[in-house]
Design a binder for these strands. Structure first.
Lengths: 228, 228
DNA sequence: TGCAAGGTTTAGGCATGCCTAAAACAGTTC
DNA sequence: GAACTGTTTTAGGCATGCCTAAACCTTGCA
């Protein structure tokens, strides 16, 4: 229970540790795999030396377990904080999209700033307005009020779907504006139904609505689906 | 044109200078009267010595004119920044009230934090959603998109209304939660119509809807009205 | 096993923004 | 016009969070 209020930077570190830790973000539970100093530095746009300093502080606050040269992982309370921040972020994205008409490529930047500054009251108001949504506009799962991250039971990567099958997109795993704009033009967004026609070296040939085309691997990589 | 992005603290200083400068907040135009170091320190919850330091910085940025021992006033560009912040604040208060159902005694604290972190896009979205309102839930005027602060033409203090007259509340000039809750119970809010029955030493006897009672001066002080 | 390459940590700095204590000033009073 | 009072400024410090440069581990490959 961190009584000390955390700084924006500290919250960002915790969130990124969560997101970088495969077993804690893609899958639902656990303290997560250890994360490297360098990985964090890249995600945060900061030098590795700065990361070391912050990790020491977070470690003193018992928010992470930090072993020099070996990586960090979240403690239970660090995990809670990270999920809280992530919930703010994804609820905000959803609200900006649904209530204020932001495009899904715009929501990330705004949510990134606001997530640190909204109260619990605000969180609750927008969650209610939205009807307690499960996913944000990109299809990412929103941690619940109890700070549990639901699991993506049957979701798999598009590239893992065999030719001939039909699938529904549930998630577009990027915040990159360019990719998101491209997906918009190709009608590839959560809820879209597509058929996998053929796997090729450079990507997947798919059919979406009436169009069919070769989807480059770089984009295909981003798509998570459930088979119909 | 301050190309450097300003810190939260700097924005707060500029906003408070604006609000403390009678001729720039109560009335519409001009660079405003000079504001004392001490006054700022009190409003900002900070020591006078800290204010001096910040004023030097703002002065170098040409956002204020600062004469040691004589006070500060906003420059033209400082005035613009302050109005921008104030617009954010009051639009947010209005949005929280109208769109998210916050009580008018709750909006201030939330807006106070968010005002520094919303984008121009966000400002515009909520302004549109609200239909470009003129006043916030307390009746305070909202600076326009062009950053002009409209003037309170005929508004006067309730205490200046002679007995026997009827008036409509346009503004409740406080952010104090206790006072605001009290006003709510007494049905005293912008739009409420009241009749001034009698001025007494301890306050004003008034009638609101079916009730009539003695309104203590401390509360009456806060009310601005237009005569019917 | 030994060494190079890469990632990681230490050391030393800088800017922001706040603090306290003490010195300097302005305006009023005698 | 000198002293007093209260305000304001200077001086010196502290915490946060970032930086660079240099020293330090660890690993993987010969």
């Amino acid at each position: 229970m961190p009584k000390t209020v955390l700084s924006e930077a500290q919250e960002d570190y915790l969130k990124q540790i969560l997101l970088l830790s495969p077993s804690a973000s893609e899958t639902p539970e656990g303290p997560g795999d250890p994360v490297s100093t360098q990985g964090l530095a890249e995600r945060l746009g900061v030098r590795p030396a700065s990361v070391t300093g912050m990790l020491k502080k977070l470690s003193e606050l018992r928010l992470v377990e930090y072993e020099p040269y070996r990586g960090v992982r979240l403690t239970e309370s660090g995990h809670k904080v990270a999920l809280e921040v992530l919930r703010h972020h994804r609820l905000l994205e959803t609200y900006l999209h649904q209530a204020l008409g932001y495009g899904w490529e715009q929501v990330h930047a705004e949510a990134e700033r606001l997530e640190h500054h909204i109260s619990e009251a605000f969180e609750q108001k927008i969650a209610e307005w939205l009807g307690h949504p499960e996913r944000d506009p990109h299809g990412d799962l929103i941690p619940t009020v109890e700070l549990a991250l639901p699991k993506n039971a049957q979701a798999k990567k598009l590239l893992a779907v065999v030719a001939g099958k039909t699938a529904t997109i549930v998630r577009v795993a990027t915040q990159d504006t360019g990719s998101l704009n491209l997906c918009t033009r190709l009608k590839l967004k959560p809820g879209s139904v597509l058929a996998v026609l053929e796997h090729q070296l450079e990507g997947v040939r798919i059919q979406v609505h009436q169009d069919h085309f070769l989807l480059p691997s770089s984009l295909a990589e981003l798509l998570w689906v459930v088979e119909a």
